[in-house]
Design a protein around this nucleic acid. Structure first.
Lengths: 147, 147
DNA sequence: TTAATTTAAGACAAAATTATCTTAAATATT
DNA sequence: AATATTTAAGATAATTTTGTCTTAAATTAA
């Protein structure tokens, strides 16, 4: 479904958002620790997302990563998936048939059509903020336990 | 969703099944041509599937690939996906959270639960035969046009 | 201005995936 | 038996993904 990079990116953002809601800026080691993702690799992913205005990064002491209220409000899971994995998951035919549609369907087209629609809904309707609130409420988690 | 290898495998099987229904055995070049997949790579995938009794292969003149009536009846898309891609798609957490469940859910758990269930249904309820009948009826296709 | 902290950027490397090519084995036909 | 046909198996290679390491740049504080 998602690539490792995308999973890391979403988990990192969920954590950063959960702290941003509390007006906290977090460092890459914190992110790595709480999201359970390799620090250097996650840093590279966050750099890419930062360039795309998904979150903000700051160098120097008191630096780190943070999401603005605007970003918390606007960024959807779909935006992150598109940046990291491209839009295959949102648009591609499940059998890889180029130009698959209701007129020229692949053999799985109709079985998959509803699922694809629901995946699109999930990705476009869920914001990073939505991922974060459950974390802060202790209702959801990013890893089994924090070392 | 599926790997390239899995897409090739499913398309190849759909074509082989469509010919097997007509009691025809097909050669790898035919498969490659009609499924639009690289021949040598597809052959390797079919070799693996053949070992797992998804279809039968025959060497020599009049050789090729064919599915038996039993295989046509019994083989589900899920079987093929499991052999080629493993069972991640059927069981894994969308965020990669180890041990994600309703008690310890990842932030996307509830949004994804229904989708995951529907993916499982699609894969376990659809047989390779189902993929083939639409092809023979001219209702579905495996590639834009055959060169 | 110097030193410490933190992310940025890119080189480097390991592993997985995708793909091709060559040789071997099996089978059928003559 | 010899030959042609076809898949099997494994070597090889290219590409992508995953991941680390080093150095640079930015920022803060003393």
């Amino acid at each position: 479904m998602f690539s490792n990079a995308c999973e890391y990116g979403l988990k990192a953002l969920a954590y950063i958002a959960s702290r941003s809601i509390e007006n906290q800026r977090v460092k890459i080691w914190d992110v790595s620790k709480y999201a359970g993702s390799p620090a250097a690799f996650t840093a590279k992913i966050l750099g890419k997302l930062s360039k795309e205005n998904i979150l903000n990064s700051y160098t120097g002491p008191n630096g780190g990563f943070q999401m603005s209220p605007d970003q918390l409000r606007d960024v959807k899971v779909a935006d992150v998936v598109r940046i990291i994995d491209g839009d295959d998951l949102l648009v591609k035919c499940i059998m890889g048939l180029d130009g698959c549609n209701a007129d020229k369907p692949c053999p799985l087209h109709y079985q998959y059509a509803g699922i694809k629609q629901n995946i699109n809904k999930m990705l476009t309707n869920t914001s990073i903020y939505d991922l974060a609130v459950g974390l802060n409420a202790g209702e959801t988690m990013l890893r089994r336990e924090v070392k």
